[in-house]
Design a protein around this nucleic acid. Sequence first.
DNA 1: ACGAATCTATCTATAGATAGCTAACCAACG
DNA 2: CGTTGGTTAGCTATCTATAGATAGATTCGT
Lengths: 175, 175
Amino acid sequence: MDRRTTILDSAERRARAGGYYGFSFRDIAEDVGIKSASVHYHFPTKEALVEALGERYLERAKEALGDPLQYPGPLGLQRVADLFLAASEKDDLMCLCGVFGAEMASLPATIGPKIAEYFDFLIGWLEVALGDESRRACTIVAALEGGMILGRTKRDPSILRAVTEQLNADLIAGA
Amino acid sequence: MDRRTTILDSAERRARAGGYYGFSFRDIAEDVGIKSASVHYHFPTKEALVEALGERYLERAKEALGDPLQYPGPLGLQRVADLFLAASEKDDLMCLCGVFGAEMASLPATIGPKIAEYFDFLIGWLEVALGDESRRACTIVAALEGGMILGRTKRDPSILRAVTEQLNADLIAGA
DNA sequence: ACGAATCTATCTATAGATAGCTAACCAACG
DNA sequence: CGTTGGTTAGCTATCTATAGATAGATTCGT
């Protein structure tokens, strides 16, 4: 695996665990096994690094989700939820954009739009999968983001799954 | 108003806007009109300051919400939602515990339990108000936390209100 | 005079960032 | 073939800014 990717992997893991200030170039350098100056070679600034992080994050979500029309109704919800469940249950990681969204006021200004883009995509995807007739998509994404926060705070990874089931029962099946 | 309170006010505002690393002792000192060393006089460490922040935050929530038995069903939801709506719509602030929950891995270890305590209270309160029969309380709190993130990210304060209405329609009325 | 609150001045640690050198590789050229 | 030169990737060393924190002097109300 090439360096750039390894660096992004380390940064993503640390950012999703502890936020923008939860990692430093030196942390990443240590993870990767190089010096912090070499991280700057690949990403001149932290802002640039985090932008790349956001872009890759969105790209991967697009690839993972595929065509929303192929996953109507509950299948669509499950597919989005799975995106969150794996990271949350396995490594207790937040959604990258969830963390950054929470910290937004202290982040470089260029990050905000990248996060918004991610949420726009996610909500848009869900709206198509659910048939587009209401604001349910927004509520679902919100509940999943919040569910991750609750899960890690209460140290109970099952919360996110319970929330997903609740959404499925009352927002999808019940409507 | 006494200094201690003024300091906590400044810290709370900044923390809810930008997270734990989104403010410094010097920032607070500037807000309050004293020197950073004087902030240390009132709160020896940042950890102590943030702990006090969390305790006050929980205390205020308890006072604001009152007795859950007096606000059954939709009234209970509305009451909790109002707790979030004001700050979100007026100043684009996150829930204190939401931000800290997202950043948890990079925070002093003593903060985690304080946040958990807040969520436990909030969810417990809602369970009583809603009649306790299901996991809806957890989903509601999650959706509200996530709704705040979405609102600030997409720069649309109306999102949180829309999410609340959705919850009311599909989780309270529809059940 | 005493203590609470604030100050000045400063410390140490760490952050992000930069300059400039080096080693490895590969292609082109004489 | 061997040399030259560009590119890539990393290094050492260091800078500047800022963080949290502390010591000790000062101010001021009672």
